[in-house]
Nucleic acid binder design. Structure first.
Length: 669
DNA sequence: GCAATGAGCGTC
DNA sequence: ACGCTCATTGCT
């Protein structure tokens, strides 16, 4: 045997000569298996088993998909390794940058890496992968950015982008702003300096508008639109052209935050308060948070932009991390429509019999009539169904809050009317409610219903076309002619030349929601609609049916989103809610929640609220529960780590009842 | 004293 | 969902 070459037996595999160990992320849904596993690379697969490739491996007796993270010289596993089964494709779809980002995001949300990778990397389409890549687009010219001169710090920000300096900002767009053009200018400025740009917007209508604006400045080759709404082949082709460096500018919806843009220069989120920016699948990452994480890791600039401002964006401004870009008050006054608020007491009904039948206040009726007479469309914003009713103070209409934890009070469902109002968060009944704002002891249930008003409004203007936008049928834009455009929030079509007037009829529905973000959301939706209306000097008018003493109503009338966001943030700080603290909701069966909380090793600042019952019994008669867990922002990482560890313990023990953990959830009921 | 059977657990 | 370990059981 000495000196004899050991020839491999038939069918026996040999490991690759160099870097024979592949570290693989396997696609299994169990939390405690969220780490790389080592496999041997057979010599036949040596040249295709590249870092970032999709692979298949045998794992616990099954063939599973995975991503090859890296090739290393040896394993520290200590036992015998199995060989990779196959390399699905040598396309390096998981770049090191995205792998690091996905890991950071998974950790931030107490989730699995593989769940993030499934979101970040679209399904493969073999035929598209085989197509020859298009020629890379040349760097575009620096665009003219005169539109940014209306904002004092705007040109300086563009200078930073052009020079490739990292600069973060929170931008408040002026009413009527052609914001897709402004975002395109940011992106093309970065691209002119051979850097990439990522523009993330709430929905596909916005993608189409911003894409068109970018193409107008930089040409078709330089831009791709990423959205799950297009077919798999088209989607993978667009994504691959980003991966291969063909397109520098990406416009997309929430999953595009992970687009493998080369040399990212600027990452922008438009309207970060829109709940479409929160991914609905575990671990529920939010666009704004991911882009902040990404800007931090890659040296890119970050922009949160919108007509309104969230408390989260306000915190970025207040902390000094993202100095704001806002127009001067004079500029705001010139750009905005005339806005009036009508509370229930000021709603003098119109004299016109048809308008009286529609229960439309005369001010609103007159605004609509004047706009239609001038040949312009009128926007009517009506509420969507399905809001959770809550309790409010009879006197000042402030949402009734729990004295212990400041959660919203509601009437316990299914019981008799005699039961006292109970906190939806901590479950404590409040038998002696007293309003924190005005001291009144009387409560009222908040009622929803204004859709009929809009329908009847059509009858009041019998000879005018009524167009609907909302639900399944959403209009992108309407023309420059008289029409009543009835839309639910988020589905407002853009009007060429602007609306002549807008009637915002959903005040009670928006403000009455039993939600922490109800006022912020109301203002955001109103501003989004009101921003589509012509300036006051051009006859533009907005009527909102809500009490003018309320903070979001005042913020709308004065067009002061910054003031409202500051107020909102200080309120949340006082109450101990996000973004002032880090909070997690923990949902599951009562037993599962109790066992999970028992296992949870909270950081020093950690605190548990609840659990409280959640909704109605399911078909097994079990009422799910929700607990809220909070910690200081400094302890945010420790909180996420503690939640992750507790989840590991549960999946490792194969506990049958699942626990759902969401960090900083949008809805805190 | 030791094989046969099954529950539990890690998964490379 | 496979396949390994280890404990318990039952029989010599």
């Amino acid at each position: 045997m000495t000196g004899a070459r050991v020839s491999p037996r038939k069918g026996e595999q040999q490991p690759a000569a160099a870097l024979p160990v592949a570290r693989v992320h396997v696609d299994v849904p169990l939390a405690h298996l969220d780490r790389p596993f080592d496999y041997l690379v057979p010599e036949q697969l040596d040249d295709v088993a590249v870092p970032g490739a999709r692979v298949r491996v045998r794992f616990a007796g099954q063939q599973v998909d995975g991503f090859l993270a890296e090739r290393v010289a040896e394993s520290d596993y200590g036992k015998k390794l199995t060989f990779l089964t196959k390399v699905v494709s040598p396309e390096p779809v998981l770049s090191p940058e995205i792998a690091m980002l996905a890991r950071a995001v998974a950790d931030r949300y107490a989730g699995n890496l593989i769940d993030i990778l499934r979101l970040a990397i679209p399904p493969r389409h073999a035929r598209v992968e085989a197509e020859p890549p298009p020629d890379p687009a040349p760097a575009p010219e620096v665009p003219d950015a005169a539109g940014w001169r209306r904002y004092p710090r705007g040109p300086a920000f563009l200078d930073a982008l052009r020079a490739g300096r990292q600069a973060h900002t929170v931008w408040q767009a002026l009413p009527g702003e052609d914001w897709p053009a402004r975002l395109a200018e940011l992106a093309v400025t970065a691209a002119a300096g051979e850097r990439g740009a990522l523009l993330v917007v709430p929905d596909y209508r916005d993608v189409a508008r911003v894409y068109a604006a970018c193409v107008a400045l930089a040409g078709e080759q330089a831009v791709v639109a990423l959205s799950a709404d297009v077919g798999p082949a088209k989607r993978y082709r667009a994504w691959l052209s980003v991966l291969r460096g063909g397109a520098r500018i990406v416009v997309g919806t929430r999953a595009s935050v992970f687009a493998p843009v080369h040399r990212l220069g600027v990452a922008v989120v438009w309207d970060d308060g829109d709940d479409l920016h929160a991914d609905p699948h575990a671990p529920y990452p939010h666009v704004r948070d991911v882009l902040i994480q990404r800007a931090h890791a890659s040296g890119a600039s970050f922009v949160a932009a919108g007509f309104a401002r969230t408390a989260e964006a306000q915190l970025l401004v207040d902390s000094g991390w993202a100095p704001e870009i806002v127009a001067a008050r004079d500029e705001v006054r010139t750009a905005m429509p005339r806005i009036v608020a009508l509370g229930e007491t000021d709603q003098q009904l119109a004299r016109d019999p048809a308008a009286r039948a529609a229960r439309i206040p005369s001010v609103a009726f007159e605004a609509a009539r004047a706009a239609l007479a001038a040949g312009r469309p009128v926007l009517v914003q009506v509420p969507r169904g399905g809001y959770v009713p809550a309790l409010a103070c009879q006197q000042c209409r402030d949402v009734a809050r729990c004295r212990r934890c400041a959660g919203p009070l509601g009437l316990p469902s299914g019981g008799s009317d005699a039961r006292p109002p109970t906190c939806r968060w901590c479950g404590v009944a409040d038998t002696a409610f007293r309003c924190g704002n005005c001291g009144s002891r009387r409560l009222r249930a908040i009622v929803v219903g204004a859709k009929r008003t809009a329908e009847e409004l059509g009858r009041a203007f019998a000879d005018v076309a009524v167009l609907g936008s909302g639900g399944a049928e959403v209009l992108a834009e309407v023309g420059e002619r008289p029409a009543l455009v009835v839309a639910t929030p988020g589905a407002e079509p853009v009007a060429l030349g602007g609306y002549g007037a807008a009637l915002l009829l959903d005040g009670w529905a928006l403000l009455g929601r039993a939600d922490l973000r109800a006022t912020e959301e109301a203002l955001r939706r109103w501003m989004t609609a009101a921003a589509l209306v012509r300036p006051a000097s051009d006859g533009g008018r907005v009527v909102v049916l809500a009490e003018s003493s309320l903070a979001p109503v005042q913020a709308l009338v004065r067009w002061d989103p910054v003031w409202h966001a500051s107020l909102e943030l200080s309120g949340r700080t006082e109450l101990g809610f996000p973004p002032a603290v880090r909070m997690a909701s923990v949902d599951g069966t009562p037993n599962a929640v109790a066992a999970f909380l028992d296992e949870l090793a909270l950081p020093a600042s950690g605190e548990i609220l609840g659990p409280v019952p959640l909704g109605e019994p399911d078909r097994d008669g079990v009422v799910k529960e929700r607990a809220l867990v909070r910690a200081t922002r400094t302890d945010g990482k420790a909180l996420a780590a503690a939640l992750t560890t507790a989840l590991h313990v549960r999946t490792a023990r194969k506990e049958p009842d699942p626990i759902r953990v969401r960090l900083d959830p949008l809805e805190l009921i």
